[in-house]
Amino acid sequence: MTPPPAPPNRLLLGFVLMLVAFNLRPALSTVGPLLHAIREGTGLSAAGAAVLTTLPVLCLGLACALTVTVIRRIGPDLGVLAGTLVIAAGLALRGFDGLVPLFAGTAVAATGIGLANVLMPALVKRDFPARVGFMTGLYTMMLCLGAAAGAGAAVPIEQAIGHGWAPALAVWALPAALAALAWAPFARKASAGASPAPNITRLLRDPLAWRVTAFMGLQSSLAYVLFGWLPLLLQDRGLSPLDAGLIASLTTLHQAPGALAVATLAARRRDQRGWVVAVLAVTLAAFLALAFGPDAVRLPAAGALGLGIGGCFALGLTLIVLRAADAASAAGLSAMAQGVGYAVACLGPLGFGLAHEATGGWGLSAALFAAITVCAGLAGLGAGRDRQVGA
């Protein structure tokens, strides 16, 4: 089949892809900082807050099931455009004050994120075949920066606007709409040729695809444990809520350079098993140092933890691209790895919290974190070998 024509300006294409990538996380990271204000303003219960924070992860996974249909009907380029527009619509919906718009907008935005998430590796594989590592690292870095921007700016924006939490959430629809507008010309040009749909059934019978999926899901589980529980763990160690938040923000900020470096360097090698061991070892050692180490190592451990977990995420996406033989396989493997992976990732923070509740301490929770890390390493050793799923 004749491949679609190359975009006339690859540098501009890369820039717009990064703009889209930046908007794939604020919808997820802006709710947490405003959760206290949301609960005060709406009477949302603790159980409702738990559902609100879990809902996006579930929608991310469910959205992956739509990917094959989207590719078959409109292609990956228009699929990314559609996903970005859905994100903007969901974010705007959250601006209507109330629990129904909040939950509905969150679900809609997460569905758009899931769709674009899956299609981005396929576009990198197709449009930047000689620089997949660098481009994967770059857009993963932008994902991390978008998450950090959303988390860090949510409260200041709420205070600046002065009309409650709803406008502070809805304002993020503006950069998402801008990203969709910037991507639209590339979507029209890149969609001129038909796009082959991935064969998910074949991937489900491929052991390598399952190893990539297991690594993606388990490393995502580690990340969601940190997102959900690191601030509380630090508060139990004597830090104030403000200081605990600053340490967590420091960890988040360090994910960006970790993602860029690991993806770029790991893709230069045919075998990524050494990188799997390295990033997981750094992640586990830094987490244990932050959870149980002396105060003197707190800041360097937080930075190292961010580098490690950012590297894990980037490596998961890089393995999707490298283990796929072509763009269609990359889209299918991305759908499988992220769809199943996010379902697995939900279990990590749940088990971590239940272990803490059962014991009142963090020892059993840390042991669970270590066990997930080891399992991710075993999956990654299989996924990191120089092999590919079939074209």
Rank of each mutant, 00 (worst) to 15 (best):
M1T: 15
P5W: 15
A6F: 14
R10A: 13
G14S: 07
F15S: 14
V16N: 04
L19S: 06
N23V: 07
P26A: 00
T30P: 07
L35I: 09
E40M: 11
G48H: 04
G48L: 07
G48A: 03
G48Q: 06
A49W: 06
A49C: 08
P56C: 07
V57K: 12
V57F: 06
L60K: 00
C64W: 08
L66R: 03
V68N: 14
R72S: 10
R73N: 09
P76H: 08
G79C: 01
L81S: 01
L81E: 02
T84R: 04
L85Q: 11
I87P: 00
I87E: 00
A88H: 02
A88M: 08
G90H: 06
A92V: 12
F96K: 15
F96N: 13
L99Q: 09
L102E: 00
L102R: 00
A104N: 11
A109K: 00
A116W: 03
N117C: 07
N117S: 10
L119E: 00
M120T: 06
V124R: 05
R126N: 13
R131E: 13
F134M: 15
M135H: 11
M135N: 14
G137I: 01
Y139L: 08
A147P: 12
A149P: 15
A149H: 11
A151S: 11
Q159T: 14
Q159F: 12
G162N: 03
A166L: 01
A168Y: 07
P175V: 06
A177D: 03
L178S: 07
W183V: 01
W183Y: 00
A192V: 10
G193P: 15
A197P: 01
P198G: 00
N199R: 09
I200L: 10
R202Q: 12
D206P: 08
A209Y: 00
W210L: 04
W210D: 07
F215A: 02
L218I: 08
S220D: 10
S221P: 06
A223D: 10
L232V: 15
L233Y: 12
G238C: 10
G238H: 09
I247A: 07
I247W: 03
A248S: 12
A248M: 13
S249D: 10
D271C: 13
Q272V: 12
V276E: 13
V276R: 02
V276T: 09
V279E: 03
V282D: 04
V282L: 07
V282T: 05
P294N: 13
V297C: 08
P300I: 05
P300E: 05
A301S: 05
L307E: 03
G316V: 08
L317Q: 10
A325E: 08
A327V: 08
L333A: 06
M336H: 00
M336N: 01
M336L: 08
V340H: 08
Y342R: 02
Y342V: 01
V344Y: 05
V344Q: 03
G348E: 02
G351N: 02
L354D: 12
A355G: 00
G361A: 14
G361Q: 06
W362I: 10
S365H: 04
F369Q: 02
A371F: 05
T373K: 04
T373L: 05
V374A: 14
C375V: 11
L378C: 15
G384Y: 09
R385F: 11
